[in-house]
Amino acid sequence: MLLDWITVLALIGIGLLLIIVELIFVPGTTVVGVAGFILTAIGIWIGYAALGTATGHIILAATVLIGGVAFFYSFRSDSWARFALKEQNKSHVNEEYQHTLAVGQEGRTVSALRPQGTALFNDLHHEVQTQGEFLAPSTPVRIIKLTQNKIIVEAIS
């Protein structure tokens, strides 16, 4: 009799724990939530089979009550807020270099530009772009256009 109670409580407890893990940590419906539901259902079924119908009803009601209270309390108390993203990334590409470069400045490609790649200006690496042409590594280039997040270059002939 004691072993039946331990089995029922262990299955229901592990099942509810897996369902809570599913809700908090694992997005969507996955194996964790399904396994938790199955373990909870098996625990309730064993409660009915081994401990009788009246005790099974009590176990079912207690399980539904505990699960509902845990679900309600987790939303009500904002305990999920610690898992939410609260910060925003407000930076831009090449933001720290936009005032150090100028149109007409010359440099050299570090990688092949197909049409994007890396070039070296003032001993600093920058992501640059051509107007569609291919440039091999170590090609001398000149800046022809600067926008907020793009550096457009051309080969120096």
Results as ranks from 00 to 15, higher is better:
3 L>K: 07
7 T>W: 05
15 G>T: 07
17 L>I: 13
23 L>W: 06
24 I>K: 05
26 V>L: 12
27 P>V: 08
27 P>D: 10
29 T>R: 02
31 V>P: 00
32 V>T: 14
38 I>M: 13
39 L>I: 03
42 I>G: 08
43 G>K: 04
43 G>M: 09
44 I>A: 06
45 W>I: 15
48 Y>F: 15
49 A>M: 13
50 A>E: 14
50 A>M: 07
54 A>Y: 07
54 A>F: 10
58 I>A: 04
60 L>H: 08
61 A>V: 06
61 A>T: 10
62 A>L: 15
65 L>M: 13
65 L>H: 04
66 I>A: 11
70 A>M: 11
70 A>I: 08
73 Y>C: 02
75 F>T: 01
76 R>G: 05
78 D>R: 12
78 D>S: 08
78 D>G: 03
80 W>P: 00
81 A>C: 00
82 R>I: 11
88 Q>N: 14
94 N>A: 09
95 E>R: 11
98 Q>G: 02
101 L>H: 05
104 G>D: 13
111 S>Y: 12
111 S>Q: 09
115 P>M: 11
119 A>P: 01
121 F>C: 07
123 D>Q: 12
131 Q>H: 07
132 G>F: 04
132 G>Y: 02
133 E>M: 13
137 P>M: 04
138 S>N: 15
142 R>T: 07
143 I>P: 03
143 I>E: 10
146 L>G: 02
150 K>G: 00
152 I>Q: 11
153 V>S: 03
154 E>K: 12
